[in-house]
């Protein structure tokens, strides 16, 4: 049984239909990439899962239907969604942002331990935890968003365009950490990316969306060799 399953999911913003029946799966312990041009419906697919857009069709998480659950409930079910623009609360400190990541969890001592543990991946966070998050650079904010998502101990992590606006080295670092978490802790990840190159390198499987439908799907290594995908998204 897949961890996340979308079957014929449609979504609309007012009169505009953004998804015309998207079907995809993410298995436990898998990193799956979601590619496509601007407006193809990548972000909307994530929003459909986290309940921030109205949908029809079937969405199931760990075997139970998610449809109609609000974002608050989806977060409580173990899906951490790092949205476009990262969703960092700039007026709060780094530490407060991290604590909010643990909002859905109980058990004070365990949370404190996780707050410590997560800083192993992001050592610089420790020194800057009392700063306002707004003072961090774009790359640091993206790292903070990732760290905050991890503190919630998600079963599925959804990242929306984590590379957007970041320097190549920072992007490399970010995906290195995601890969590390996947290997060491078995974290399942669904990542939306414009940067198809790095996304295909870091994932095991991938889907390519075109105007609200899945156009191509397959193993990431195969897709890198796929002529259409290469020409349209990889640029060689």
């Amino acid at each position: 049984m897949p961890l996340l399953e979308l079957d014929g999911v449609q979504a609309r913003y007012g009169p505009i239909q953004a998804l015309h029946g998207v079907s995809l799966t993410v298995d436990e312990g898998e990193v799956v990439a979601l590619l496509g041009a601007n407006g193809a419906g990548k972000t909307t697919t994530l929003r459909a899962v986290s309940g921030t857009v109205a949908t029809s069709g079937r969405i199931a998480f760990a075997g139970r239907a998610l449809n109609g659950a609000g974002p608050e409930s989806v977060a409580r079910r173990g899906i951490a969604h790092v949205p476009e623009g990262r969703g960092i609360l700039g007026e709060l400190t780094v530490r407060e942002n991290l604590r909010l990541g643990a909002y859905v969890r109980r058990g004070r001592r365990e949370v404190e331990r996780d707050l410590e543990r997560v800083t192993e991946h992001f050592p610089w966070l420790r020194d800057r935890r009392d700063q306002d998050a707004a003072t961090l650079s774009g790359g640091e904010q993206q790292m903070l968003a990732l760290a905050r998502a991890l503190v919630s101990r998600p079963r599925l992590l959804m990242l929306d365009e984590p590379s957007l606006g970041l320097a190549p080295l920072v992007v490399q670092e970010l995906f290195r950490i995601v890969g590390e978490l996947n290997r060491e802790e078995g974290l399942s990840v669904l990542v939306v990316e414009q940067n198809a190159n790095i996304a295909l390198q870091s994932s095991s499987r991938a889907y390519v969306l075109e105007v609200g439908r899945v156009a191509v799907e397959g193993e990431s290594t195969e897709l890198r060799a796929h002529e259409g995908v290469r020409r349209s998204y990889l640029g060689y």
């Binding site: 974002p71 969703g87 609360l89 007026e91 709060l92 909010l100 909002y103």
Partner: peptide
């Protein structure tokens, strides 16, 4: 407090807070 923090988050960026599980 955790609740106080959640209230501040809900006031600053309700959409982001919601994704973190805060019942805004």
């Amino acid at each position: 407090t955790k609740l106080g923090l959640a209230m501040r988050a809900a006031a600053i960026r309700p959409e982001a807070a919601r994704l973190l599980g805060v019942r805004v």
